[in-house]
C-alpha cells in the first residue's frame, strides 16, 4: 500500500503534463515506487502514464526510440534493440530483475530511477543514448551522460516526464560487450559494465567504456576510452582499459560488497566486456552469475 491520496490516469500527454508537480510521482511500471521508499519522499499522489501512447519502440531518423511505457521484457526481445552493438542493451534489459519484474518495469523507469547499479544505463551510455523530456515549456533533449546527477538524482524537473529514450543506431560494424557480476544469478549488479568499440583497419576508432555500481552515477571511463583509441583491439589494450577503469572507480562499501571488491570488479567487468567487443571472448562465456 502506497500512502497516497489520489491516483491520476491521464488519457493524453497534455493531461499528464498538466498534472505534473513535486508531490506527484510519475508511474510507468511502478515497480521501483512500490519497493523503494526513497522515491516516495514528499509524494502524495501518483500519475499513471499507462494510458498514454508511449509504448512505441521504433526507428526514426537514425534513432531507436523507446517510449516510456515499453517494458524491459519488450526491450529485451525487440529485434531492433538486438541489432544495436551486439545486443548489449537487450542483454542489460534481460538481466534486470526477474521475468515478472521485466513484464511490468520499463526501460525509461530504470533510467528515471537513476541508480548507479541499474543494468540498462551502462549499455545506454555506451550507445550514446539521449533522454527526451517533456514539460510545460516543451521538449528538451539531454544526453544520458549529463542526465544522471547522483544516486536517485537526475536532471528531470518535477514538472517534466521522460517521453522516451533515444538510441542512435551505431554505424555498421560497431561491436559491443556487456558483463555483470552479482552475488547470485538473480541479483542487483555488484558491478556491471558495457562497452562499444568500432574498429577500422585494425585500429580502434571509437570506444565507450561504462561501469556501473562503482560511483554515484553509472561511470563513463573517459581515460579508458582515450587509451583505446588508435590501438589494436588486443588483449593488452583491453587489460589496460580495465586498469584505467579500476583507477576511475569511486565505489562505496555496502551490504553487497566492499569498496575494494567493487574497485577490483570494475576492472574485471570492463575488461571482460571489452574482450567481447574486441572479439577476444565469446559473449557471456565467462563464469558469470548473470
Amino acid at each position: 500500500m502506497l500512502s497516497v491520496d489520489a491516483y491520476h490516469r491521464p488519457r493524453s500527454l497534455e493531461q499528464a503534463l498538466a498534472l505534473l508537480a513535486p508531490e506527484r510521482a510519475v508511474v510507468a511500471g511502478g515497480t521501483d515506487l512500490l519497493v523503494n521508499p526513497r522515491y516516495m519522499a514528499g509524494v502524495r499522489e501518483v500519475v499513471d502514464l499507462g494510458s498514454l501512447p508511449l509504448a512505441f519502440l521504433e526507428v526514426r531518423a537514425g534513432q531507436v526510440r523507446i517510449g516510456a511505457n515499453v517494458t524491459m521484457a519488450a526491450v529485451a526481445r525487440s529485434p531492433l534493440v538486438r541489432g544495436l552493438a551486439d545486443a548489449i542493451l537487450s542483454r542489460g534489459a534481460a538481466v534486470c530483475g526477474s521475468p515478472n519484474i521485466r513484464n511490468m518495469a520499463t526501460l525509461v523507469g530504470n533510467v528515471a530511477a537513476a541508480l548507479p547499479s541499474a543494468d540498462t544505463p551502462p549499455p545506454l551510455l555506451a550507445l550514446d543514448a539521449w533522454v527526451l523530456l517533456r514539460g510545460p515549456a516543451g521538449a528538451r533533449r539531454v544526453a544520458l551522460q549529463d542526465f544522471f546527477l547522483g544516486p536517485a538524482r537526475a536532471d528531470r524537473r518535477p514538472d517534466e516526464l521522460i517521453e522516451c529514450v533515444e538510441v542512435p543506431v551505431p554505424p555498421p560494424g560497431t561491436a559491443g560487450g556487456f558483463y555483470k557480476v552479482g552475488r547470485t544469478a538473480d541479483d542487483i549488479a555488484t558491478v556491471n559494465a558495457a562497452c562499444v568499440l568500432r574498429v577500422e583497419e585494425g585500429r580502434i576508432v571509437a570506444a565507450r567504456v561504462v561501469v556501473g555500481a562503482v560511483a554515484p552515477v553509472p561511470l563513463r571511463v573517459a581515460d579508458a576510452e582515450a587509451a583505446l583509441l588508435g590501438r589494436a583491439p588486443d588483449e593488452a589494450a583491453v587489460v589496460e582499459a580495465g586498469r584505467l577503469a579500476v583507477a576511475a572507480a569511486q565505489p562505496i562499501s555496502d551490504q553487497r560488497a566492499s569498496a575494494e571488491h567493487r574497485r577490483h570488479l570494475a576492472g574485471v567487468c570492463a575488461t571482460r566486456a571489452l574482450r567481447q567487443a574486441a572479439g577476444l571472448a565469446p559473449h557471456g562465456a565467462e563464469l558469470a552469475h548473470a
Binding site: L2, Y7, R9, V27, G30, T31, L34, V35, V46, D48, G50, T71, A73, G97, S98, P99, N100, I101, N103, M104
Partner: peptide
Amino acid sequence: CGTGDCCACGVILDGRSVNACCTLAGKAD
C-alpha cells in the same frame, strides 16, 4: 517479500505474468 523479489504473488495481468505486490491496483483497471 513485498519487494518483487520472490514472485509468490505472481498473477497474469492481460496476458503478462507480473508481481501483484509491486503492481498498483489502478493498473488493473
